[in-house]
Simulated assay, not measured.
Amino acid sequence: MSTTQNERLRGLLEPLVHAKDLDLEEIEVSRAGRRGLLRVIVDSDEGVELDACAELSRVISEKLDETDVMGEGEYVLEVSSPGADRPLTEHRHYVRATGRLVKLRLKEGGDLVTRVLAVDDDGLDTEVPGVKGRKATARRVEFADIDKARVEIEFNRKDKKEEEA
């Protein structure tokens, strides 16, 4: 996708996404055979419901029909939330991961699996789970020390709603 098309799409879609109290995380345009594929990834602090994606898809489709930003050919529009394995790249991603287990690749080398307890402007306060009966340990990780980060999927993790009950 050309930068010009990306900029035009972002300028067109961002106000529509923000009007639904969502963040525009990613726009991806690719080819799927003879058709184009426009994938729009949105998120919020509370997550994204399927109904919100469907409504936003309708609004975006109407807006795209009014413009030529996708060209003359056929295309498929997908509006979805980020997957569970999406990289953490923005400050807001780390804030949304508070309470979650994350895998950090550190610039000094090595990986760290830790639970995010708090996020500030400079980094993360985390808790490294104990191994073989040992207690968890607190660890501070500065953003400047993180090369890559991703949420770890926990199948036995309690939902926040369960914990509040």
Rank of each mutant, 00 (worst) to 15 (best):
T98C: 13
G47K: 00
V116D: 04
V102D: 00
A144C: 10
L16W: 06
E14D: 09
E7S: 15
R139Q: 14
E25T: 10
M70R: 07
K160T: 09
L77A: 13
D23W: 06
D85Y: 04
L64N: 07
G133A: 14
L13E: 00
G83H: 03
V48P: 05
L117R: 07
L124H: 02
H91I: 06
L88M: 08
E26Q: 11
G36D: 13
L124T: 05
E142Y: 11
H18Y: 09
R10H: 13
R34T: 12
Y75P: 12
K160P: 14
L16A: 07
R150G: 00
V42L: 09
Y75A: 15
P15Q: 03
T4Q: 13
D111F: 03
E14G: 03
D125Y: 06
G36K: 10
V48R: 01
V48F: 03
R134E: 13
D43H: 06
Q5E: 13
R34D: 10
R157L: 08
A118M: 04
L104K: 01
A84C: 06
D21G: 10
E55K: 05
N6S: 15
E72N: 15
V95F: 09
L13C: 03
H18G: 08
R58P: 00
A138H: 04
E72P: 14
V59T: 14
R96T: 02
H91Q: 10
K63S: 13
M1G: 15
T98Q: 14
T67C: 09
E7Y: 14
E72F: 15
I41Y: 00
S57K: 01
L64Q: 06
T3A: 14
E62I: 11
L106Y: 01
L101A: 07
E26R: 10
